[in-house]
Design a protein around this nucleic acid. Sequence first.
DNA 1: ACCTGAACACCGTTCAAGT
DNA 2: ACCTGAACACCGTTCAAGT
Lengths: 234, 234
Amino acid sequence: MTRMATPSRRVRRSVQRESIVSTALELAEREGAGALTMRRLGEELAIDPTALYRLFGDKDELLLAVYDKIQAMSVDLLGPVEPDEAWPDVLRRVADQNWEITGRFPAVIALMAARTTGGGAERKLVELVLSTFARAGLPPDETVLFYRAFVDMVLALSAQTASLAMLEPEVRAKDATAWSRIYAQLPEEQYPSARAHIAELTSVTERQIYDAAVEAVIHAARARADDLRQTSRD
Amino acid sequence: MTRMATPSRRVRRSVQRESIVSTALELAEREGAGALTMRRLGEELAIDPTALYRLFGDKDELLLAVYDKIQAMSVDLLGPVEPDEAWPDVLRRVADQNWEITGRFPAVIALMAARTTGGGAERKLVELVLSTFARAGLPPDETVLFYRAFVDMVLALSAQTASLAMLEPEVRAKDATAWSRIYAQLPEEQYPSARAHIAELTSVTERQIYDAAVEAVIHAARARADDLRQTSRD
DNA sequence: ACCTGAACACCGTTCAAGT
DNA sequence: ACCTGAACACCGTTCAAGT
């Protein structure tokens, strides 16, 4: 019978952290934002909530780890990028993947999307998206500018969608029906454009808006690259 | 001596609401997000915190009123739009004004930017921005799509910037220096693009990214309108 | 060396009791 | 008719006391 090597304290710590992060993720997906408290998480893990503070400095640190885990799932689901895949298509897949993940974990996305974790998954995503933009044929400063505009916009729109999804049902319903409740009733003389577009305003979806924004950045980057090619040829 | 008319209960209520909203706004601007609690606000107004619940159903309703007041300031500061002002310039002014307001009231923007208030100021902004996009020469459905992409993106990016600004100083510093701390140190073989662009990554500003995103949407809308004109001419 | 549980300083919100 | 203050059911976090 081979005796198992006793794991070092460092290994034990990281295993414990891993299992806490996984449980937090499940809990957030299953029961929403309200369930993501230290007490509730301790209950789920059958440990004293204050024990969490030996593994994580505070709740923020725990949430950053949870967020990095989500990003890791995102990278996994994205799959490999072949060198001959057109750069706009890669960006569309990234945006798509992000939307998917936002739908699954709105509680964490709403809280953390503005943050920089510096974690392993984030680094991979940075390299992937940045190298994709580098293929558009822009100078370095504009490559970075469009890269950041794309990433920040995708994350920001996801976070907004997520935080709407996190509202209590009644508040959310009020928000969702605002266009038909309020804007359809406005006086024609004062609000001619709103009234003229009311059908389109009530029927446009969050997803269509997200895609339009993504396409706008892709389009702008491509147009700028074309412009520069044109100018340098003269 | 002319006797003042006793204000009706409805008038009295709206005056009280107004003064609570103003105080909440001052408090948020002066002391940040942490100060925006019902107890703290009651203290500031020298009234019992529970008295606030007679004027507002709950904290969310109060914050919506505060947010509408901010939007009213935004509309005021925007000033008149002359019919001959080019539509992209109007949008740039709107984006600019929004950035300004976000810097002044990050606490409220971070909490409420995803919400639809249906308030007076919001209605004016909707009509203004929508009628501006209507001048781009797009069909109604695409007018609405670009309008929403523009507004949602501007609000979402502002909210992300605001929520970063709201973090405790140490956390914020960690976040702000992530690029130079982490990404400048990555191994060249695994992260060639990140390393190749490190100077640009560390020097690009939030404001430049915001402007780039705004210009991307304006550019995409204009390009689409040009396209349609071209096609219909054939 | 690890873990627990009491406690601190807060929240938003409700409601019986006062004037 | 209006207002107050005690109380409820929570938070994140700390730390002395236990094993």
